[in-house]
């Protein structure tokens, strides 16, 4: 403590690199480093959970059922759970974890004191939660492959698609985080938005037999489009309107990001 060197070299040599538009990667990197510390539990969550669900429900209920739209119930459920899991994973990260960094840990405030902008942070969190969703999806694809459910290599298309689905739910969730006052708000989000959407999007049972108005409502949201794509590409169900499905999901991803960015900017730079 007694012999103090100057803290750092000469004055005025602060790093000032040319502005780059990849500053958001610092935020992704930070979250990745934290996630890596908990790798064990994260992977168990990503792999063991869906495996148990698929085996339990797929074989348990599946054995009682005839084929569902030409698929075994295990195939049907696997492709539905794929999307459900991407949604859940991205949503939890962009809600609970992001809100913790926004409010309780003041992580974002600290980052803003560095030469970073709110937009850097929001894009970083959006991408990170999207990646977590995608990782969850990739794990389920792995489980499905292990169970012999994947019909062709077209299932590989689902890797970029689960990232897009992750970004869509990450974007929507960040909007909710932007306006949230406490964690309680997220319970409303899950109970009043996520659950009903799940029930009308063909995740656990087909949406075809639902009343037309309910079906139509389901198609306004990204989950039904994600399950349609997953079912077509992973287990070989008939697949139409690929562009429409992708477009709806992408619109949610981009609009969510834009709106979240505006709201969080307002909140943090009051």
């Amino acid at each position: 403590m007694t012999d103090l060197h100057p803290v750092v070299g000469a004055l005025g040599t602060s790093s000032e690199r040319p502005a780059d538009r990849f500053r958001f990667l610092h935020v992704v990197h930070r979250n990745y480093l934290v996630w890596r510390q908990l790798l064990g539990s994260a992977l168990v969550g990503h792999l063991a959970d869906p495996l148990l669900w698929l085996v339990g429900f797929g074989f348990g209920i599946g054995s009682l059922l005839p084929t569902v739209g030409g698929l075994t119930y295990l195939e049907f459920l696997g492709s539905g759970m794929l999307c459900y899991s991407v949604m859940n994973s991205a949503s939890f990260e962009a809600l609970y974890s992001a809100f913790t960094r926004l409010k309780h840990q003041r992580t974002w405030e600290g980052i803003l004191h560095a030469p970073m902008t709110v937009t850097d942070i929001v894009i970083g969190e959006w991408v990170w939660a999207g990646l977590k969703g995608a990782l969850s999806g990739a794990a389920i694809l792995l489980v499905m492959a292990g169970l012999g459910l994947l019909k062709s290599f077209s299932a590989l298309w689902l890797l970029p698609i689960v990232l897009l689905v992750g970004l869509a739910f990450s974007g929507i969730a960040l909007v909710v985080t932007a306006v949230a006052k406490s964690y309680d708000m997220f319970t409303y989000y899950f109970s009043l938005f996520v659950m009903p959407m799940m029930l009308v999007s063909g995740v656990f049972f087909p949406a075809e037999q639902l009343p037309p108005i309910v079906r139509f409502t389901g198609e306004l949201f990204p989950l039904s489009h994600a399950t349609a794509l997953a079912r077509g590409l992973a287990v070989g169900a008939p697949l139409d309107h690929v562009v429409l499905h992708l477009a709806v999901i992408a619109i949610y991803a981009v609009l969510g990001l834009g709106l979240a960015n505006n709201l969080i900017k307002k909140r943090l730079t009051k």
Partner: peptide
């Protein structure tokens, strides 16, 4: 943002990670 590259900030409430 460019100005903050030359500045250090010690906030009122700790926001260590």
């Amino acid at each position: 943002r460019e100005a903050r590259a030359r500045v250090g900030v010690v906030p009122q409430f700790d926001n260590l990670d």
